[in-house]
Nucleic acid binder design. Sequence first.
DNA 1: GATGAATGAGCTTTCATTCAT
DNA 2: TATGAATGAAAGCTCATTCAT
Lengths: 239, 239, 239, 239
Amino acid sequence: MKTIPPGAPEPDIPAEMPRSSARARGTMPARRNAAATRQRILDVAMSEFAEHGYSGSRIDRISAAADVNVGMIYHYYGNKDDLYLAALEASYKVIRDREQTLDVAHEDPVSAMRQLIALTFDFLSTDPCFVRLIMSENLMMGRVVRRSRIIPGMTQPLLDALRTILKRGQAEGLFHKDIDAENFYISILGLCFIHVSNRHTLGSMFQRNFADVEWLRQRKEVVTDILLSYLAVSATRVP
Amino acid sequence: MKTIPPGAPEPDIPAEMPRSSARARGTMPARRNAAATRQRILDVAMSEFAEHGYSGSRIDRISAAADVNVGMIYHYYGNKDDLYLAALEASYKVIRDREQTLDVAHEDPVSAMRQLIALTFDFLSTDPCFVRLIMSENLMMGRVVRRSRIIPGMTQPLLDALRTILKRGQAEGLFHKDIDAENFYISILGLCFIHVSNRHTLGSMFQRNFADVEWLRQRKEVVTDILLSYLAVSATRVP
Amino acid sequence: MKTIPPGAPEPDIPAEMPRSSARARGTMPARRNAAATRQRILDVAMSEFAEHGYSGSRIDRISAAADVNVGMIYHYYGNKDDLYLAALEASYKVIRDREQTLDVAHEDPVSAMRQLIALTFDFLSTDPCFVRLIMSENLMMGRVVRRSRIIPGMTQPLLDALRTILKRGQAEGLFHKDIDAENFYISILGLCFIHVSNRHTLGSMFQRNFADVEWLRQRKEVVTDILLSYLAVSATRVP
Amino acid sequence: MKTIPPGAPEPDIPAEMPRSSARARGTMPARRNAAATRQRILDVAMSEFAEHGYSGSRIDRISAAADVNVGMIYHYYGNKDDLYLAALEASYKVIRDREQTLDVAHEDPVSAMRQLIALTFDFLSTDPCFVRLIMSENLMMGRVVRRSRIIPGMTQPLLDALRTILKRGQAEGLFHKDIDAENFYISILGLCFIHVSNRHTLGSMFQRNFADVEWLRQRKEVVTDILLSYLAVSATRVP
DNA sequence: GATGAATGAGCTTTCATTCAT
DNA sequence: TATGAATGAAAGCTCATTCAT
């Protein structure tokens, strides 16, 4: 819990003098890299909130895992709610950023769509943290996300990318015309989300481990099939 | 979820005299009816847990809303965990029972499938209580549902019904052969669940009200289209 | 817990119709032998208070074990305190009665003393209930026993018996003269009480089981030796 | 038990300004001294547990008397059980330490034995706290003491001291040979313990105050006589 | 005499938050 | 910037006791 992550540089602390123990002995003034401390708190908070939900998360646990004093959390983030919002926004940023790595303008539309689906599926399945954070927030009726000023803005690039793929597919006669991008994204999300969000209740219902790698591989194929079937021009329309 | 189940008659309580306020004023002797009290607690608990999740729910609030002493809850249900399990099981029972009202053996397979999808969609969308209960349980890593002895058993009839529809559709050459019933149910669930479970975060992302009736109507059509496209023999298989 | 003790006759209940189950089915009016019910409650209370002490004892447990309604306990005994007093008095009566079975007037004084010591030792060691009841009461600073009107009176016969033995021993030149009966009884009690009252802490200190039968046998000899050494005329008096 | 141990200096708190009342009035900033607070809690806990037993003791009362917030108790001691264990161990330490002040190796054996008996008698009689703590623990069937890692270890020095006295006495021909040290200690304890542990029930039986100083003085002599009579070579052995 | 549903006060414990240093 | 001792409100749960029937 108290080990310093290797990736967190603390340049102004001499390596030969381990911080925490020296501090414990009171031989060193409390002075560190503020930005790093802030970030460390945020990283830990993201895990904590993801693992335990909002109500289940403990400020004490976060401060211990981030190796900072409780007061620091309040100093940097004000209160539990705001820390939670920060964690939520940071989590959204990760997936939104990743989505922007796709080359939607030049890649073959079907392939681009497959990549978007795969990226979404893998992101949600690989680490349930994001999914759990989203669930927790929705259980709170969006009380916190509602206050976010940046999350709505992060959605536009995603929608743009999706529309670009759809338009190019339609122009090439591969996708049928009557598709709403927003609604389609929700379908992608629904199909990629459910076995992660409901892992445990589904597990209880079907007595199966939905984190099993082989099962996930098959499920990703099915999800892709379902969504591409729907997009295909040849798809049977509902009469 | 807040309606008193039709099977629980309380004939000797005059409808025009609401118990709680009258009792609070001390003008009416306490009605002693164990079964009714038990049920009232369960009904209230289902709402409370659905609204606030497990950690966020308060025994005090439940006892107040059920108009009983806190001790009664412990007398009837043991502890918060067991009350929560009872609420969860009761909720599952409602949807599983409703699924069994479908006539999957005689109805035209496509129509039967549409009905199953519609039933699932409507059940989840009409009252978010069930969805929220499920989410809460999954956030707790299935800690409670794992102890349920009846939930696993409730799944079999659903799978049987789904398999019957699929087989009959395949026999009539309407559905293609390569469909796993369990996986397909998860797809149904995913597509019907997401806009309820993620209502608030999606609302924040897209600045739209996902409880809007007109939107739900359209969404139900899309979901049905997606799932039937996938089932259809003409569907483009992934090469 | 619910089995009826064999010694408790319930003449007016036909044997072929087990009481509790019939009552559960509501087929039998609630009507029993009042005195037997009262006694059953007391018997159970003695065990309960002995096992858990006053604070640790539960009215609910007593009513369940006595197979009566909670209200009956209040009906017959008023409240927890008074039930506890009744249990305490009944317990004292058992040992005081037993002490009176000794033939102190005709038996050889040394032998009579040995018998009194053995009786006390065995009574306390065989069933720790009495000891624990006494301990519990003393932990409560005698709050309840102080209200007893019969316990002080029960002591006199014991003291009389002890004095008789001592006088006869002194008259025969077996015991030395300077012995206070009351003080001597306290010595008997202390030596016979400690390994029962302090069974667990002594067990922790010495890592030994002080309920072991062989150890008890030896201990009884030592206790007798100690007390008889002190009584003996030849005993070295402190200069 | 209520005195502040000499080793815990609180130099910067002016003696003429009692902390609790001043702080209650809000005129003095809270003294932040973890060790002192911890000790204060323990001191109060020892009294509280001694006075009311485990079940009867109240965390609220302890926190009030120690002039700290309830949470502090849990912060320092975890829970009621662990606080009780700490109090128990601290109490044992006091008597075990005191026993080690005897010079068993050089003092005349009879005199050393007298001193050990007197020390034990006085320790138990002067302040009933220790006795009551022991009783409470035994009423709980040793549930807490069983977890102690230090109490068993504290017994050895006592046994060693006792064996030293006995051996030297036997070597000098003062004590007879057949004496088990452990059993003999239990006899000492039993004779010194009973009038304290059973003060109230004995008081009720004999209508006498067993905390009376003069009675205690006589009793101490009797106890010493009894034990020395038994040790003496001239003691009449049981045939 | 007997029932059992119901009560309310009080318990131990937890936790976000503050504040003097 | 950083510390950690301290707080107060509220949580889950228990239990002696009452009361209509």
